[in-house]
């Protein structure tokens, strides 16, 4: 249930394109035709699906303060979080290039339709954004990280599919010449984003209060009172 909630939340409420405005560049550049948009969308889903869990593992076992504890207790004090960017980027770029090589070898037809987008993805900030959100939101388990990656990717896919369909249709409309192309796309995206904002109200009841919450014990309360008396 929680996984399902996370999945839909990352698709609609925290949509990569419309809510956090990541991945805008490829979203705008590759949305002229539905077929190419689908290609890029699928590639993004795929790469997010792989890199978010991978980077989650990196974060848990290498980067977080104290994450190196599994090596030996004496490494528990190390904080390598300043390396996050570099490692995340390296994972993403490596994965993208690996995928490219594998797809090219085994399915040339898929490569022909997808291949051109793969290098584009390495610089798509939605991908790095996915990993950084995973880190900053402290997603607790590997499964959730995977679901989050999948959901964010699907959100991007939906967004780029929608705008590509609109752009195909708008060709028949009488748009002012200077707005044609990029200009009108910006404005439509803005309007779509306003629409997506309405999803924001869907999941508001979710306070974390439900989890086990310690409170200060009676014994401790008396001790604090003593301490306060001393300075009063």
């Amino acid at each position: 249930m929680e996984l399902l909630e996370l999945f839909f939340k990352s698709i609609f409420i925290e949509n990569m394109v419309f809510a956090t405005f990541l991945g805008m560049c490829s979203y705008l550049a590759v949305s002229k035709k539905v077929s190419t948009a689908v290609g890029l969308g699928v590639a993004v889903i795929f790469v997010l699906f792989i890199t978010v869990p991978l980077n989650w593992l990196l974060d848990q076992y290498i980067l977080q303060p104290g994450a190196l504890r599994w090596l030996d207790e004496e490494y528990a004090d190390y904080d390598l979080s300043f390396l996050s960017f570099i490692l995340f980027i390296a994972t993403i770029a490596t994965m993208v290039q690996l995928v490219e090589i594998v797809v090219e070898k085994f399915s040339p037809s898929l490569y022909n339709s997808l291949g051109v987008f793969l290098p584009l993805i390495a610089v798509n900030c939605a991908i790095l954004g996915g990993s950084l959100f995973m880190q900053s939101r402290e997603i607790p388990t590997l499964t959730e990280a995977t679901v989050y990656g999948l959901g964010s990717g699907t959100g991007f896919f939906l967004a780029i599919l929608a705008i590509a369909a609109i752009r195909e249709k708008i060709r028949y409309s009488n748009v002012p010449p200077a707005l044609r192309g990029l200009g009108i796309t910006f404005i439509i995206t803005g309007l779509m984003a306003i629409g997506f904002m309405s999803f924001g109200g869907m999941l508001t009841g979710g306070k974390d209060g439900g989890s086990k919450q310690e409170t200060i014990s009676k014994v401790a309360i008396e001790k604090i009172k003593e301490e306060v008396k001393q300075i009063d």
């Binding site: 924001g200 508001t204 306070k207 974390d208 209060g209 919450q213 310690e214 409170t215 200060i216 014990s217 009676k218 401790a220 309360i221 604090i224 009172k225």
Partner: peptide, 26 residues
């Protein structure tokens, strides 16, 4: 800034709740 505001309220709630027992006892 709805999400920041909600996050802030949630933070105040969950992080101050443990201390509340002391003030209530007073």
């Amino acid at each position: 800034s709805t999400i920041t505001g909600d996050g802030l309220a949630a933070m105040i709630y969950s992080e101050l709740a443990p201390y509340a027992s002391y003030f209530i006892a007073l």
